[in-house]
Computed example of a mutant assay.
Amino acid sequence: MGDLPYLFVLWWPISVYYAKRNNYFGLSITASLLTIFFFISVNSISSPQVVWAVYPIFIILWWPLSMYYYSYQKKKFSLLLEEK
């Protein structure tokens, strides 16, 4: 579990960087990749013969997908309002 402190040390400056620029989709992509790397490294260190990291990775991937879908719907709704 030596990777856990590195995850939080990297997570904080990344979240501050993206929050200042109001780029929450970029934050979701970067934080998801960082968290996925964390789960893969913990899986390979603790039990390399069992690939259990796939299950939390699928859950983590919903964050950027939902952010993309929200921004897509927001743009689609604003275009509908402009047409009327």
Rank of each mutant, 00 (worst) to 15 (best):
Y68M: 15
S15T: 10
A53K: 00
S78I: 12
S78Q: 14
L81M: 09
V51H: 11
Q73L: 15
Y70H: 13
D3L: 07
S32Y: 03
I45L: 11
M1G: 05
F37K: 11
L27H: 03
L33W: 06
L81D: 10
L65P: 00
L27R: 03
Q73W: 08
I29G: 07
P5Y: 01
P56V: 01
Y69H: 13
E83T: 09
F25K: 04
K75H: 11
I60Y: 02
L80M: 15
G26K: 08
P5H: 02
L10W: 02
E82N: 09
K84I: 13
S32V: 04
S28Y: 05
Y69D: 10
V54D: 09
E82R: 09
L79K: 11
A53M: 11
N23H: 08
Y69L: 15
V42I: 14
Y72N: 09
M67N: 14
W11L: 08
Y24R: 03
N23W: 09
Y55R: 08
W62D: 01
K75L: 13
Q49F: 09
Y69K: 14
I36T: 11
P56Y: 01
W12N: 06
Q49L: 14
A19Y: 07
Y6C: 02
L65H: 02
G2E: 07
L27P: 01
P5T: 01
M67Y: 11
F58E: 00
Y72G: 04
L61I: 05
I14P: 00
W63M: 08
K76Q: 15
F37T: 14
P64R: 04
S47V: 11
T35Y: 07
K20H: 06
P56K: 08
K20T: 07
S47Q: 13
D3H: 03
L27F: 10
P5Q: 02
Q73F: 07
V51F: 15
F39W: 07
K84F: 12
V51D: 15
S66K: 14
V9I: 11
V54E: 06
A53I: 06
Y18C: 11
G2Y: 06
P5A: 02
I40F: 11
K84M: 12
I60F: 05
N23A: 11
L10F: 04
Y6I: 02
E83D: 10
S28V: 04
G26R: 05
K84L: 14
L79S: 13
S71I: 10
F25N: 06
Y6H: 05
Y24C: 01
S15E: 07
V42L: 15
V16N: 08
L33H: 01
K74E: 15
I36V: 14
F58H: 02
F39T: 02
V54Y: 08
V54L: 14
Y18I: 04
Y68L: 15
I57F: 06
T30P: 01
S32G: 14
P5E: 06
Y72L: 12
W63P: 00
G2V: 06
F77W: 08
F37I: 13
A31M: 11
V51S: 14
Y72W: 13
L80G: 12
Y6V: 04
F38Q: 05
G2C: 03
S46K: 05
S28D: 03
I36Q: 07
Y69G: 15
Q73G: 09
S44F: 12
Q73A: 12
L33E: 10
F38S: 08
K76F: 12
F39G: 04
F8I: 01
I40K: 09
P13K: 01
F37W: 13
N23F: 03
